[in-house]
Design a protein around this nucleic acid. Structure first.
Lengths: 213, 213, 213, 213
DNA sequence: TCCTAAGCGAGACGGTACGTCCAGTCTTCGT
DNA sequence: ACGAAGACTGGACGTACCGTCTCGCTTAGGA
């Protein structure tokens, strides 16, 4: 089954040091970095974007403010980086049919954005995007790029199968698959559910079906 | 031609309480109220949501801070009220054809959200929605309700004409018409143009065409 | 026995201007005036000079702020007027001996400034004098002038009796009788008691005794 | 000649706590402290007590308001500390005669309190004392304690010489030397001059002369 | 008897300062 | 040679009063 997993963006970076190794004279920079990102995410989720203060992060992470600013240039950069931590790594579905593939993809997205934890995070994230092109770019390349890539593969496959028009406007297709979901999430506040997933997929298949019907 | 007009939301001030409602003391200044709302909007448009400070509003409106807090309980409430001032009143297009009607509607929306003045305002507004359910509600009932109404009329007309399915999911149709536009505006940052309008309308007409086509 | 009494300074309200001075409109309310003065004194005594706000007076007196400013030009003027209300009217003692007279006078003063009610009032009053020459003048002519007069009479009598030098520096004698008391009250904070009264009187009698003693 | 000098009250910073008292983090800036005290004194002298605002001090000292509140708990505490800066360090006169000594001391006091700069400061200071026991205490221990010490020495010397009674009430003597001066400064507003100094000293010498005259 | 001017309680007005909170920077000490 | 702790400047926050300005309502004298 198709799965998006919330993964820790931590790179392999040091799987070592389980056997009681006290870093006497050496910095524990990576530990601080992770504590800060963790505290940032935790506060974003519990208190919301507005209540997120650098001082709060520093206190929760048991870290000096300067250490935060040593790693990130601004509050925005920190948030941007923290958000990267919850990138959805999208597995490209392969169910054998175009409809099955698209439905799997949409259902996965529905699942992600229904998760209360992400639902709490998203509005703040959008606020951050609204005020920082930098964060916007990070979200786009982090949150969305994977999804774009997956959709593109699916669309190519669908066109190859003759299920969709060869002249398909990829950009529009992306917006139609993603737009309604975010529209509900951010603007209308209506339910994000399976009915939405099915509706969008059906619309795609019918609306972008090859002309020579 | 279809037009959205910025209208003043000032209303008849509640005719609902006839029984003896005379507050004592000097009445609140409508002039101050308007100056504050005007300053708020001006600053929202020029400087953005983050740069909007109560002190800035007070200075620009030549008003004491206390007066602002006397009229509105919070910054959010002020912004919410200011936003009410720029409700779009949507005229329902009637071109004779379903495609013409939908295209007129979408093109109007494209025009509105391409307007640099609104483009500057919108991200801040979304940020405000993200952090205040109150503002979100106002935006939904103000900005969007008119649009919903217009779309509903058009869809009914299209179904009556036999251009769309009678079983059409209205909610989905609304999201498909609006979602891609906001998705580009808030998330992907891609161009909002006539191509988008045409693409969405064509998709609707093909994808929601009656089954026995 | 010698007595200082707190008297109401209310006077006959100037019968001096009979020639055609009748202001039009509603006359100013004497009740309001008295309520304001009463509230002012009460607040001065309980809360102190700093906690005395015009708004507080208005609330306590159940009066509009404008009414206060209609009667007095400033906060200082109000306080000045309120202070007039508690003028000490000093009775000149006549015990038959200079020592008895001076002692009676000093003991009366000691009694007055030990009274907790006056003790609460005085520091604020001094604060008011410190910042308003107007109030200072009122205090001087109200609180102190009576006392000066009494002392002058006693000194004259003492000189006539031959108990004090005929070349006595009256001004200095006044300061010596009053200074130590206020010095303790305002600066050193030490006890104002009978020992002080006796000490000062003895000092006077010995220090200002006729030279050919 | 006897001199009072304005000295910096900076002290050895409490040698009383030897057991390991090193606070973590950046230590408080002595430069900021001094800038704040300097600005406070300057404003006290030029603008007066009432015109002294924390914001004004912060601006003049080029310091954040928070820094002021970090160093002093209140406006009063700040003023109290600022006043300490102009402590008069009294040199004990030694002219060879009791009269010469006392006269030197009184003339020094007269000189200090005639100085227009101090005269401007004093009323505000008294106002501050009136409203804050804390300030009162600081003034007593700063402004006055030195003076008390000097007077005590002089009185002891005078008693030893047989110029004053051995049973002299020291407390009363202190009040008689200081009271008239402050009485004029704060209450009667009369001139503080050499005549006052001479009068008080003569009174002391005669009034407190040994009994067996 | 009505008219009209001024005073009344109430409270909003433009301002100034308050004392607090964070942002982002800088400084010290301990490990 | 870091890193925690925390002080630094700066600026907005929301509150308290200042002295002024309406409101709708007395309260009186003069028309």
């Amino acid at each position: 089954m198709t799965r998006s997993r919330v993964v820790n963006a931590k790179k392999a970076k040091a799987p070592a040091t389980p056997p009681a190794k006290r870093p006497r004279g050496r910095p524990r920079s990576e530990a601080a970095r992770e504590a800060i990102l963790g505290a940032t995410l935790a506060l974003l989720r519990t208190a919301g974007y507005d209540a997120l203060t650098i001082e709060g992060v520093a206190e929760r992470a048991e870290v000096g403010k300067k250490t935060i600013y040593r790693h990130w240039a601004s509050k925005e950069a920190l948030i941007a980086d923290a958000v990267k931590q919850i990138v959805s790594e999208i597995e490209i579905p392969d169910t054998g049919t175009t409809k099955g593939d698209l439905l799997a993809l949409m259902r996965d997205a529905v699942r992600v954005y229904r998760d209360p934890e992400n639902a709490t995070l998203m509005p703040g994230l959008v606020a951050a995007m609204a005020r920082s092109e930098r964060i916007a770019e990070i979200v786009r390349s982090g949150f969305l790029a994977e999804r774009r890539r997956a959709i593109t593969v699916l669309l190519d496959r669908a066109v190859a199968r003759g299920d969709l028009q060869s002249t398909l406007d990829r950009e529009l297709a992306l917006d139609v698959l993603g737009g309604p979901l975010f529209y509900r999430l951010l603007i209308t506040g209506r339910a994000i559910d399976d009915r939405l997933a099915r509706g969008v997929v059906d619309l795609m298949l019918h609306g972008f079906a090859p002309h020579s019907n």
